[in-house]
């Protein structure tokens, strides 16, 4: 897919683990893992909102379009 999820990059920048993010965002580890590994087919605005709040970033920092 042309959309890349840069969740792992942002997590590394904020020095936060998947477990900590899971607790902050309220998502299961399995779902976060799907998002992190790029297997996700869609993302809800509410999920994006909570991840942006937890990582203090913009949606554009998490999502990238490549040609």
């Amino acid at each position: 897919m042309a959309i890349i999820v840069n969740l792992d990059v942002m997590m590394a920048k904020r020095k936060i683990t998947l477990n900590e993010l899971s607790e902050k965002v309220g998502l299961t580890l399995a779902n976060l893992s799907i998002l992190k590994t790029g297997k996700a087919k869609a993302i809800r605005f509410s999920t994006l909102d909570s991840i942006c709040k937890a990582l203090d970033c913009q949606p554009a920092d998490l999502l990238e379009h490549v040609k």
Binding site: L27, N31, L32, I34, L35, K39, A40, K41, A42, I43, R44, T47
Partner: peptide
């Protein structure tokens, strides 16, 4: 179903 399962 697959799309729903992979919607986070």
């Amino acid at each position: 179903q697959n799309e729903n399962d992979f919607t986070v």
